[in-house]
Simulated assay, not measured.
Amino acid sequence: MLLRRIVPQRRDEIKQYASHRSYKPYLREDFNKRCGYCDADDKFLGASAAFHVDHFAPQRFEERKTDYTNLIYSCRYCNGSKSDYWPSDCSQTSVLKEEGVIDPCEAKYDEHLARNEKGYIYPLTNLGGFIHKLLKLGLTRHSVLWKLQHIESNLDKMDTQIEELSTEQLKIYQLLSSEYRNLISYICEYGNK
Protein backbone atom coordinates (compact mmCIF):
# COMPACT_ATOMS: atom_id res chain seq x y z
CA MET A 1 0.00 0.00 0.00
CA LEU A 2 1.21 3.52 -0.68
CA LEU A 3 2.91 5.41 2.13
CA ARG A 4 0.87 8.56 1.55
CA ARG A 5 -2.75 9.14 0.67
CA ILE A 6 -1.92 12.17 -1.52
CA VAL A 7 1.45 13.25 -2.94
CA PRO A 8 1.98 16.85 -1.82
CA GLN A 9 2.41 19.52 -4.47
CA ARG A 10 3.90 22.93 -3.85
CA ARG A 11 2.15 25.77 -5.60
CA ASP A 12 3.96 27.38 -8.53
CA GLU A 13 3.26 31.03 -7.86
CA ILE A 14 3.99 32.40 -4.42
CA LYS A 15 5.07 35.72 -2.98
CA GLN A 16 8.69 35.86 -1.85
CA TYR A 17 9.27 36.27 1.88
CA ALA A 18 12.42 37.10 3.83
CA SER A 19 11.77 34.34 6.37
CA HIS A 20 11.05 30.67 5.67
CA ARG A 21 8.52 30.70 8.54
CA SER A 22 6.27 33.05 6.57
CA TYR A 23 5.56 30.21 4.12
CA LYS A 24 4.10 27.89 6.75
CA PRO A 25 0.37 28.50 5.99
CA TYR A 26 0.99 27.86 2.29
CA LEU A 27 3.06 24.76 2.96
CA ARG A 28 0.41 23.44 5.32
CA GLU A 29 -2.16 23.69 2.56
CA ASP A 30 0.14 22.32 -0.17
CA PHE A 31 1.12 19.36 2.04
CA ASN A 32 -2.55 18.59 2.86
CA LYS A 33 -1.96 19.35 6.57
CA ARG A 34 0.37 16.34 6.69
CA CYS A 35 4.03 15.76 7.31
CA GLY A 36 5.76 15.51 3.95
CA TYR A 37 7.96 12.67 5.19
CA CYS A 38 5.68 10.38 7.24
CA ASP A 39 2.19 11.58 6.20
CA ALA A 40 1.08 12.22 9.81
CA ASP A 41 -1.99 14.46 9.94
CA ASP A 42 -1.10 17.60 11.90
CA LYS A 43 -4.36 17.50 13.89
CA PHE A 44 -3.05 14.50 15.84
CA LEU A 45 0.22 16.21 16.75
CA GLY A 46 -0.82 19.69 17.85
CA ALA A 47 -1.87 21.14 14.49
CA SER A 48 0.12 23.82 12.71
CA ALA A 49 1.61 25.20 15.94
CA ALA A 50 3.50 21.93 16.51
CA PHE A 51 4.65 21.43 12.91
CA HIS A 52 7.88 22.80 11.46
CA VAL A 53 9.08 24.24 8.19
CA ASP A 54 11.96 21.97 7.23
CA HIS A 55 14.70 23.04 4.86
CA PHE A 56 15.05 20.05 2.55
CA ALA A 57 18.54 21.21 1.56
CA PRO A 58 19.88 22.60 4.87
CA GLN A 59 20.15 26.30 5.67
CA ARG A 60 23.89 26.24 5.05
CA PHE A 61 22.91 26.59 1.39
CA GLU A 62 22.14 30.32 1.57
CA GLU A 63 20.57 30.43 -1.90
CA ARG A 64 17.86 27.96 -0.79
CA LYS A 65 17.00 29.36 2.66
CA THR A 66 13.76 30.99 1.52
CA ASP A 67 13.27 29.04 -1.72
CA TYR A 68 9.71 27.69 -1.51
CA THR A 69 10.68 24.62 -3.55
CA ASN A 70 13.13 23.71 -0.77
CA LEU A 71 10.66 23.86 2.11
CA ILE A 72 8.77 20.92 3.61
CA TYR A 73 5.82 20.94 6.03
CA SER A 74 7.13 18.51 8.60
CA CYS A 75 6.21 17.04 11.97
CA ARG A 76 8.73 17.83 14.66
CA TYR A 77 9.79 14.17 14.82
CA CYS A 78 10.79 13.85 11.17
CA ASN A 79 12.34 17.33 11.13
CA GLY A 80 14.36 16.52 14.25
CA SER A 81 15.46 13.17 12.86
CA LYS A 82 16.52 14.61 9.50
CA SER A 83 18.00 17.70 11.13
CA ASP A 84 20.57 19.23 8.76
CA TYR A 85 21.56 15.94 7.13
CA TRP A 86 22.63 16.32 3.51
CA PRO A 87 24.80 13.87 1.55
CA SER A 88 26.63 16.33 -0.72
CA ASP A 89 28.18 19.76 -1.11
CA CYS A 90 25.61 20.65 -3.79
CA SER A 91 22.17 21.91 -2.76
CA GLN A 92 20.59 20.08 -5.72
CA THR A 93 22.11 16.65 -4.98
CA SER A 94 20.03 14.95 -2.30
CA VAL A 95 21.11 11.35 -2.98
CA LEU A 96 24.61 9.85 -3.38
CA LYS A 97 25.21 6.11 -3.71
CA GLU A 98 21.81 5.12 -2.25
CA GLU A 99 22.19 7.46 0.70
CA GLY A 100 20.16 10.62 1.07
CA VAL A 101 16.57 11.80 1.01
CA ILE A 102 14.10 12.32 -1.82
CA ASP A 103 11.96 15.45 -1.84
CA PRO A 104 8.54 14.23 -0.66
CA CYS A 105 6.85 16.30 -3.37
CA GLU A 106 8.30 13.90 -5.90
CA ALA A 107 6.10 10.90 -6.70
CA LYS A 108 9.20 8.68 -6.65
CA TYR A 109 9.36 9.12 -2.86
CA ASP A 110 6.65 6.42 -2.75
CA GLU A 111 8.80 4.07 -4.88
CA HIS A 112 11.13 3.68 -1.89
CA LEU A 113 8.73 3.47 1.07
CA ALA A 114 5.33 1.87 1.64
CA ARG A 115 2.88 0.82 4.38
CA ASN A 116 1.63 -2.60 5.29
CA GLU A 117 -2.00 -3.40 6.18
CA LYS A 118 -1.35 -2.35 9.80
CA GLY A 119 0.01 1.03 8.76
CA TYR A 120 3.66 0.32 9.49
CA ILE A 121 6.08 2.07 7.16
CA TYR A 122 8.72 -0.14 5.57
CA PRO A 123 11.46 0.36 2.96
CA LEU A 124 11.15 -0.99 -0.59
CA THR A 125 14.72 -0.23 -1.70
CA ASN A 126 18.17 0.37 -0.24
CA LEU A 127 17.59 4.12 -0.50
CA GLY A 128 14.21 3.60 1.19
CA GLY A 129 16.05 1.74 3.96
CA PHE A 130 18.35 4.71 4.45
CA ILE A 131 15.42 7.17 4.58
CA HIS A 132 13.50 4.82 6.89
CA LYS A 133 16.41 4.67 9.33
CA LEU A 134 17.28 8.38 9.11
CA LEU A 135 13.71 9.56 9.73
CA LYS A 136 12.94 6.77 12.25
CA LEU A 137 9.91 5.76 10.20
CA GLY A 138 9.78 2.34 11.86
CA LEU A 139 8.49 3.77 15.13
CA THR A 140 5.04 2.62 16.25
CA ARG A 141 3.86 6.24 16.35
CA HIS A 142 3.54 6.24 12.55
CA SER A 143 1.30 3.18 12.53
CA VAL A 144 -0.89 4.47 15.37
CA LEU A 145 -1.45 7.81 13.62
CA TRP A 146 -2.28 6.01 10.37
CA LYS A 147 -4.79 3.79 12.19
CA LEU A 148 -6.45 6.81 13.82
CA GLN A 149 -6.82 8.45 10.43
CA HIS A 150 -8.24 5.22 9.01
CA ILE A 151 -10.84 5.02 11.81
CA GLU A 152 -11.79 8.64 11.27
CA SER A 153 -12.24 8.09 7.53
CA ASN A 154 -14.56 5.18 8.22
CA LEU A 155 -16.56 7.22 10.73
CA ASP A 156 -16.88 9.98 8.14
CA LYS A 157 -18.25 7.42 5.66
CA MET A 158 -20.74 6.28 8.28
CA ASP A 159 -21.85 9.90 8.76
CA THR A 160 -23.12 9.88 5.17
CA GLN A 161 -25.15 6.71 5.80
CA ILE A 162 -26.62 7.59 9.18
CA GLU A 163 -30.25 7.56 7.95
CA GLU A 164 -29.87 3.91 6.91
CA LEU A 165 -28.92 2.68 10.40
CA SER A 166 -31.33 0.92 12.71
CA THR A 167 -31.94 2.43 16.15
CA GLU A 168 -29.53 -0.06 17.75
CA GLN A 169 -26.86 0.52 15.09
CA LEU A 170 -27.25 4.28 15.53
CA LYS A 171 -26.69 4.01 19.30
CA ILE A 172 -23.56 1.91 18.76
CA TYR A 173 -22.29 4.28 16.08
CA GLN A 174 -22.87 7.35 18.27
CA LEU A 175 -21.07 5.70 21.19
CA LEU A 176 -18.14 4.67 19.02
CA SER A 177 -17.97 8.09 17.39
CA SER A 178 -18.09 9.85 20.77
CA GLU A 179 -15.38 7.62 22.23
CA TYR A 180 -13.20 8.18 19.18
CA ARG A 181 -13.63 11.99 19.29
CA ASN A 182 -12.79 11.99 23.03
CA LEU A 183 -9.69 9.90 22.35
CA ILE A 184 -8.59 12.31 19.61
CA SER A 185 -9.11 15.29 21.92
CA TYR A 186 -6.99 13.55 24.55
CA ILE A 187 -4.28 12.67 22.04
CA CYS A 188 -4.19 16.21 20.66
CA GLU A 189 -3.97 17.64 24.17
CA TYR A 190 -1.25 15.15 25.14
CA GLY A 191 0.63 15.85 21.89
CA ASN A 192 0.93 19.51 22.84
CA LYS A 193 2.69 18.75 26.13
Score class of each variant (00 low, 15 high):
Arg115Thr: 06
Lys118His: 09
Gly119Lys: 00
Gly119Leu: 03
Tyr120Arg: 15
Ile121Val: 09
Tyr122Met: 06
Pro123Thr: 08
Leu124Thr: 01
Leu124His: 09
Leu124Gln: 09
Thr125Gly: 03
Leu127Phe: 04
Leu127Asn: 05
Gly128Tyr: 00
Gly129Tyr: 00
Phe130Gln: 07
Phe130Pro: 00
Ile131Glu: 09
His132Leu: 02
Lys133Thr: 14
Leu134Glu: 00
Leu135Lys: 00
Lys136Phe: 05
Leu137Met: 04
Leu137Asn: 01
Gly138Cys: 02
Gly138Pro: 12
Gly138Trp: 00
Thr140Val: 08
Thr140Ser: 14
Thr140Leu: 12
Arg141Asp: 08
Arg141Trp: 00
Val144Pro: 02
Val144Trp: 02
Leu145Asp: 06
Trp146Pro: 00
Lys147Asn: 12
Leu148Ile: 11
Gln149Ser: 11
Glu152Ile: 01
Asn154Asp: 07
Leu155Met: 07
Asp159Ala: 09
Thr160Arg: 12
Gln161Asp: 10
Gln161Leu: 10
Gln161Met: 03
Ile162Lys: 06
Ile162Phe: 13
Leu165Ala: 09
Ser166Asp: 06
Ser166Phe: 10
Thr167Lys: 15
Glu168Met: 08
Gln169Leu: 11
Lys171Ser: 11
Lys171Asp: 15
Ile172Gly: 07
Leu175Glu: 15
Leu175Ser: 15
Leu175Arg: 15
Leu176Lys: 07
Leu176Pro: 00
Leu176Trp: 02
Ser177Met: 02
